[in-house]
Each structure stands twice: as structure tokens, then as C-alpha cells.
């Protein structure tokens, strides 16, 4: 319960508009799904009243990873595949910051796969958005781990030989998973609701966002965009609510219990229709930064006491000083 003083002070808080979170002008292609994700995230920041100086976006390499440049918050554009360990370091050092991660299907599922697996397990409180356009876009069209079988690209001129990796199924198979959701950039209302729910979840929130690439694979998601029946909206008491406007267009819906991991895994394996919504949520998985919390305030006196306790384990004989006593052979 807030005290009366805290309630009164809230009246003096600064309120930011959407434009206050707009950094550079996005240089993504026209029609790129990243624009929709950017708009949804900026709305989230405004609606949650996030303080720009306490918010940080971390990315790796790829089109997705241009994201921090377009947010007027703190950002870290890291190296390929390393968005997650950098974000985890930020969170450990500054647990008070709101940490978001923007990563792509190459950055996360290829070079960054090892970090991805363990980041799920650590369950640190951050919101991770996988911008999955199923192609390497920045490097001009190579097959990525999530590219569907048969896709022709610069590195698969005869068509990809393997089925695409399913990031949802992978995430749901890792110990300590606490939040998994899927969104599509062409349904902005659901995208916003999912990203909001992911932000509010206390833990590692993984959101796979199927995202259009109008430059390299413009027809990739066309059948699903044109036919609303091929999108399955998930709703439920512990999931999302579908608004009336959505209900009018997307009639293919399923009531889903987000606490049921088995049902979530079954839904994750679906590719047609594309499931959109929260697949799994567990608020009880402890976050790593709380597990590692010392439980005690690290005051200067506390730190000094700890250091002295360690130093007291050793005796250092100064150079040129009295002779050290003979060493006693250990038994």
C-alpha cells in the first residue's frame, strides 16, 4: 500500500509523450515489420511511463539490431550474437533499469544460440524481442536458422535442405522458462498487448515476432496476412483478452491456459495457422538477480568487513624484513 506522501508525489512525476522516445529516424525499408515493432515499443514506454534514463535497449547485429538507435533511451548496439550476455551484465550491475533486448533470427538462433539457451535458464528480468523475418536481411539474403525448407537464397540457391528451427519450441524446452509468446507485426494491436504483457512479467520474457521483410522475402507471410483465418488468436483468463475489433476480423480463436506447458508446446509446433498470443507464463520462477542478491546492504562497512576477513587469512612478510618463520610441513 502506497503512503499518502507517495500518492501525492506521483502527481509531480514527469509524463512523456511518444515522441520523447523517438531517437533517430529509422532507416529500415518501407514496409519493414521493424517499424511496427518500434511503434509498439514506443507506445509501451509512453503508457508505462518509463523513464528514458532508466531504460536500455540492447541489440546484436542485424536489421533488428538497429533498434537502439531509434529509441531515445540508453542503448547498447553490441556484437554479433552477444546481445543477451550484455543485457544480463547490465541487469546484474543495475537491476533497477528496464532492460529490453532486440535480436534477430540470425543473431539469436545462430551465432547467439548458446547465450540464448542459458539466458532462458537464468530467467533474469528483461524483455526479449526476437525479430524473426526468417532471412538474413542486413547481409542481403542468406538463409537463417528459421528460414523454411526450400527457400532459395544466396547460400541456398537450390532451396534450403532443412526445416526451419522453431524458436518457440526451443525456448519451451529449456529449464526455468517463464514467459513465451508469439506476435506478428501485421496485427499491431495484439503486438502491443503481447509486448506489454512481456514487459510486465517479472522474468525472462521471450517474444518471437514474425516480421515482414519487403525487400528480400516480400511474399513470405502473404498468405497469412491476406487470410485472417490462418491466424489463431490465443486468449484466456491468464492470457490476453481479444478486443471486439480483433474478434470481428480474426474469428479463429482458442481459449488457452497459459500455465499449461504441455498445451503450450503443442501450440508452439503449429505453423499453419500461426498462433498469436501468450503461450506460456509462470510467475513463480525465481529471477536470477534475486537469487544472487546478497540479502544484505553492501554498505562501505560491510564491504570493508568482508575484505578484512579475507585479508586476515594471509600474513605477508615484507621484503627485507625479519626472516619468515620456518614452514611447518603439513601432515
Amino acid at each position: 500500500m502506497s503512503t499518502a506522501t507517495e500518492c501525492l508525489l506521483k502527481l509531480y512525476d514527469e509524463h512523456h509523450q511518444l515522441e520523447d522516445y523517438q531517437g533517430g529516424v529509422p532507416r529500415w525499408c518501407s514496409g519493414c515489420g521493424d517499424n511496427a515493432i518500434l511503434a509498439a515499443v514506443q507506445r509501451l514506454c509512453r503508457d508505462q511511463g518509463l523513464r528514458p534514463e532508466k531504460t536500455v535497449f540492447v541489440s546484436g547485429i542485424g536489421c533488428s539490431s538497429r533498434f537502439p538507435h531509434y529509441m531515445k533511451t540508453y542503448g547498447f548496439h553490441g556484437i554479433h550474437g552477444r546481445a543477451l550476455p550484455i543485457a544480463e551484465g547490465i541487469k546484474m550491475a543495475r537491476p533497477d533499469l528496464d532492460v529490453f533486448v532486440n535480436t534477430g533470427d540470425g543473431d539469436c538462433c545462430s551465432i547467439g544460440a548458446a547465450h540464448w539457451i542459458h539466458a532462458i535458464r537464468y530467467n533474469m528480468n528483461m524483455t526479449v524481442m526476437l525479430h524473426d523475418n526468417q532471412i538474413y536481411g542486413l547481409t542481403k539474403m542468406q538463409a537463417s536458422p528459421t528460414s523454411p525448407k526450400g527457400i532459395k537464397s544466396n547460400t541456398t540457391p537450390r532451396g534450403a535442405y532443412l526445416d526451419g528451427l522453431n524458436p518457440l519450441a526451443v525456448t519451451l524446452g529449456v529449464q526455468n522458462v517463464s514467459f513465451v509468446a508469439q506476435a506478428v507485426d501485421w496485427i499491431p494491436e495484439m503486438l502491443y498487448d503481447i509486448v506489454s504483457a512481456a514487459y510486465r512479467h517479472k522474468g525472462f520474457s521471450f517474444v518471437r515476432i514474425l516480421q515482414r521483410c519487403p525487400e528480400w522475402v516480400p511474399k513470405m507471410f502473404e498468405p497469412w496476412i491476406q487470410d485472417p483465418q490462418r491466424t489463431l488468436l490465443l486468449h484466456g483468463d491468464n492470457g490476453l483478452e481479444i478486443g471486439p475489433a480483433m474478434a470481428r476480423i480474426y474469428r479463429n480463436q482458442r481459449k488457452h491456459d497459459c500455465s499449461d506447458i504441455h498445451a503450450a508446446r503443442e501450440i508452439a509446433s503449429m505453423t499453419d495457422p500461426i498462433p498469436v498470443g501468450i503461450l506460456y507464463r509462470d510467475e513463480n520462477v525465481p529471477v536470477y538477480e534475486n537469487l544472487r542478491h546478497a540479502g544484505q546492504l553492501r554498505s562501505p562497512a560491510f564491504v570493508r568487513k568482508g575484505l578484512e576477513a579475507e585479508f586476515d587469512k594471509f600474513t605477508v612478510w615484507p621484503e627485507g624484513g625479519a626472516e619468515a618463520p620456518p614452514q611447518v610441513a603439513s601432515a
Binding site: 511518444l18 518501407s30 507485426d185 499491431p188 494491436e189 519487403p214
Partner: peptide, 24 residues
């Protein structure tokens, strides 16, 4: 409400098409 903020229409004519407070 279904706009995905892709800039296609605003690039055609920024006086005819604009974004609202939700960038749609």
C-alpha cells in the same frame, strides 16, 4: 488500429496521411 507503421502511405503523401499519437 490495424496500421503497422510501415511508412508506405506517409512516404507517398505526408499531407494526406499522418500518424496519430500511437504512430498509426
Amino acid at each position: 488500429p490495424r496500421c503497422t507503421t510501415c511508412n508506405e502511405c506517409t512516404q507517398i503523401n505526408a499531407k494526406m496521411f499522418a500518424y496519430n499519437e500511437n504512430k498509426q
